[in-house]
């Protein structure tokens, strides 16, 4: 039987991981780089970070943002979590024949505004138009280039290091789902879609002992942490009760049988840091408008663990393992 790409290949979980491993990494033989938020490499003697992402979100306008804003914040964040100062972004548009020019204008202006706020220049662009029915309105690719900061992470992870998340999780996932208007869900949840470069830059400048950062987008907090654990060979134990989740997000998850740990975020960063600095980290985050609800949510329980894993501590003190997203997030009745 012909093997085909399924939607699950794009959900950021197990199948995405496999696709990257088996198709892209094997062909491009570029090892790890290809799966990170950004690739870092020397060019003309300087260290540069590069990241690329395509944005295909539906609906293209949603509470808290639109595909254009997202295309900038997503790429700014991928650079920022790699300790790079975002410098320039390229923008590639694929438009469906019949797409309203007024919508394009709104989107492009959001991009310009967000780029300005993030102090990043949009330096190159491209537009392709495809036949009606050959795309879903608009797709945007942004590729970001940044210069590695003077202050960078010191990834010598130690047992006892803290895991911190900058705020409530699952907001983007639920905002998009309810904006889609398909499952009957009505919420006021806004996408958290935001550029985190300044929050992250403050942390790097003001605190030592930041080990690692990642933006838990597709696949959610769980998948991002599983990948960090695997890539950097350490294990983490979360205290699920401590994870900040908006009440409505919990409500929506209860109704539809979702696990908020797997819902996408677009304005959150998860950080591993030295436990002695955790109060400072929380303080800096909480003083920033995008980190007001920052919390310590877990700790590193082992390092040099060739098979790093993510666990969650239950209320009664036992632990359970948490895996990366499997398949797709679908509403369940049982």
């Amino acid at each position: 039987m012909v093997q085909r790409i399924s939607l699950a290949h794009g959900e950021g979980g197990e199948l995405t991981h496999q696709l990257i491993q088996e198709v892209f990494m094997s062909a491009f033989s570029s090892k790890k780089e290809i799966q990170h938020d950004s690739a870092v490499f020397p060019i003309e003697g300087k260290r540069i970070a590069v990241t690329t992402d395509s944005y295909v979100v539906q609906p293209i306008f949603f509470p808290g943002g639109n595909i254009g804003k997202l295309a900038i914040t997503g790429t700014v964040n991928d650079l920022a979590v790699c300790c790079a100062v975002p410098k320039m972004i390229t923008a590639g548009f694929i438009l469906e024949e019949g797409f309203a020019l007024s919508d394009l204008n709104k989107i492009v202006h959001s991009m310009a505004e967000e780029a300005k706020a993030a102090n990043v220049k949009i330096v190159a662009g491209d537009t392709k138009v495809v036949e009606k029915g050959s795309a879903d309105g608009i797709f945007i690719n942004t590729t970001g280039i940044g210069a590695i900061s003077e202050q960078v992470c010191s990834p010598a992870i130690k047992k006892g290091d803290c895991v911190v998340v900058s705020g409530t999780i699952g907001d983007h996932g639920i905002a998009i789902l309810s904006a889609r208007n398909q499952l009957g869900l009505l919420t006021d949840v806004q996408s958290d879609c935001a550029s985190l470069h300044s929050l992250i830059q403050s942390l790097l400048e003001q605190v030592d002992g930041i080990r690692l950062m990642r933006d838990p987008t597709r696949g959610g907090l769980a998948t991002s942490l599983v990948e960090l654990c695997e890539d950097f060979q350490f294990s983490v134990e979360l205290e699920e009760d401590l994870i900040p989740i908006r009440r409505e997000v919990t409500g929506a998850c209860n109704i539809l049988g979702f696990d908020p740990l797997y819902l996408a975020n677009e304005g959150k960063v998860v950080i591993v840091c030295d436990s002695t600095n955790k109060d400072k980290v929380i303080e800096i985050m909480q003083n920033h408008k995008y980190g007001e609800e920052a919390k310590v949510i877990g700790k590193v329980i082992s390092v040099n663990d060739s098979n790093g894993k993510l666990y969650s501590r239950t209320q009664i003190g036992t632990t359970r393992r948490i895996h990366r997203l499997n398949g797709m997030i679908l509403p369940r009745i049982c």
Partner: peptide, 11 residues
């Protein structure tokens, strides 16, 4: 009926 589950709503 319109119901509320922890702030999320649904008919």
């Amino acid at each position: 009926a319109l119901v509320d589950v922890l702030g999320s709503k649904m008919y």
